[in-house]
Design a protein around this nucleic acid. Structure first.
Lengths: 197, 197
DNA sequence: GTATTTTTGTAATGATCGCTATATAAATTG
DNA sequence: CAATTTATATAGCGATCATTACAAAAATAC
């Protein structure tokens, strides 16, 4: 049940690996942000000329949206950490720690591409990224509804806020250990809210 | 003891109010971000032609730096809230609440201009903003050194992280009450760290 | 083979970017 | 009065922005 095999069409076959090109675009977008990278640089990194880029992906914004989907799939293992039935407070603390570690792991790809993209100057790109951001918040809410329905909203908001701040710090060069210390401190508030009441 | 009166120089006098022009630039930078506003739009909002802008402020980045200084002076009352001798945990909680309120007060100027500027694509502008960001973190550390020297670093990091996240949320349109709820929740961790140990 | 379809590389579109050369206007200085 | 100094407005600089005509190339279809 994989995705449908692309039956080789009629015209001239594409000369580049579409997914590999997406990977190159992801690396560049993550390193420099949507506003910081131009189509010329993207095309060069993807080993492609601009017309092929537009034929395959539609526009810079559409390419970014597709890259965001790829990133959301292979990025933070939110669903694994927030499995239904897992103890809420430790699971959320683990998610914050994991975020702190991943955001600062590679200086070339510091921070979260979704959360950074949500603050860019381009309206289209920011809108796409904010949709993914909202989807992540929704996953946290859904995870909390069964056990702490009344606190699900504020805790989900808090998680996204802290992760957004961690992402900014990571991009500014804050080292991993300080990010993890902040994540651990942030976890205290989660335990407070989810254990009392 | 005000700043030295600018003795009227020799040449043709400036035809616009320099501080009022800075105010217009501040409004535009805050509304659209450094990357989102061009020199042409700035000059028009300031009621000035580009050459006068450059003669008075040097460059777009230098203008932004000067605007950031103006903003840091008239923005969050950090020094008032973090007066020496104030009870640390309530003071920091009040600062987070104040930030949440101010960041979402006016949709035209949502978020913190310093924290948002620190994530822009332009290296020069981001560097300026990060200096102001670091200065704010330093003020929190200095405030905590007398009473909680061992926790000053992590708490200051945490404050900046949460405020950066609140700023991002405010720019995304999160309403004031939800931001304040997150700020209050974030305050719990501060109390935990500063009262125990 | 010829027709059709799709991708390719070259080159360029108009728009906007930050910035400035130039000349004129308005002030002080002697 | 000239001479000097500074600010002004017009107009345009080269560079880059996202995007696209255009025609040659490479595949299938008949």
């Amino acid at each position: 049940m994989t995705v449908k095999e692309k039956s080789k069409g009629r015209g001239r076959p594409r000369a580049f690996d579409r997914d590999a090109a997406l990977g190159q675009a992801q690396a560049l977008f993550h390193a420099q942000g949507y506003d910081g990278v131009g189509v010329a640089a993207l095309a060069q990194a993807m080993g492609v000329n601009p017309p092929s880029l537009y034929a395959a992906f539609g526009s810079k914004a559409a390419l970014f949206d597709e890259v965001l989907g790829r990133y959301a799939r292979n990025g933070l293992p939110i669903d694994a950490l927030l499995a239904p039935g897992a103890p809420p407070a430790p699971a959320l603390r683990a998610l914050l720690r994991e975020a702190a570690n991943i955001y600062a792991a590679d200086p070339q790809t510091a921070g979260c591409m979704v959360l950074e993209g949500a603050r860019g100057a381009d309206a289209q790109a920011a809108c796409c990224a904010r949709n993914w951001k909202a989807a992540s918040a929704q996953r946290v809410r859904d995870f909390l509804i069964p056990t702490h329905a009344d606190k699900a909203q504020v805790v989900a908001d808090y998680m996204v806020t802290v992760m957004s701040g961690l992402s900014a710090d990571a991009r500014a060069g804050t080292p991993t250990d300080r990010l993890v210390a902040v994540a651990d401190m942030a976890g205290l508030a989660i335990a407070d809210v989810l254990t009392e009441g």
